[in-house]
């Protein structure tokens, strides 16, 4: 086995093939280094904050992942502590529902008293 005996076309495929893989991924690198800049330019979000009595315009696009994590955690903790306003009335409300045979206990399976779980005496007494 010697690499020198390999045909020249094999060397061509080797070098060219690897180079094409590199070029393809380098293109992607270039595009994805540019895209955040374009998005930032397009959104161009700015906020006005008051610092030392003066209004200052600040770019809020440059927020690091750590800052985002801190904000998200703070919001999460705040919302967990926050409860809905409740009426503070703890008595049980009487609920009136219209009669429906679908939810009637009268027609439930347990009321028929099958012989295997209801004694004879119980069945008669039910009548």
């Amino acid at each position: 086995m010697t690499l020198l005996s390999v045909e020249s076309s094999t060397w061509t495929i080797t070098i060219l093939g690897w180079a094409i893989v590199f070029v393809a991924l380098l293109f992607l690198v270039g595009i994805f280094l540019t895209i955040p800049k374009i998005i930032r330019w397009a959104s161009n979000r700015k906020v006005r904050v008051v610092e030392n009595g003066q209004e200052v315009v600040k770019d809020i696009n440059d927020i690091s992942g750590e800052t985002n994590a801190v904000i998200a955690t703070a919001l999460h903790l705040f919302l967990n502590e926050n409860h809905d306003d409740e009426s503070n009335v703890i008595t049980i409300k009487q609920v009136q529902r219209r009669y429906s045979p679908w939810s009637s206990k009268l027609y439930g399976m347990t009321n028929y008293g099958f012989p295997h779980n209801v004694s004879k005496q119980n069945r008669y007494s039910r009548r």
């Binding site: 086995m1 690499l3 495929i13 690897w18 590199f22 393809a24 991924l25 690198v29 280094l33």
Partner: peptide, 25 residues
């Protein structure tokens, strides 16, 4: 994105083996 190039660099394994397999006949 620059870390993407490392994925391209490691593909040398494919082309080196291609060369080696050709040399083995």
């Amino acid at each position: 994105p620059k870390l993407m190039i490392l994925g391209a660099a490691a593909q040398i394994g494919i082309f080196a083996t291609f060369l080696g397999a050709s040399a083995l006949g």
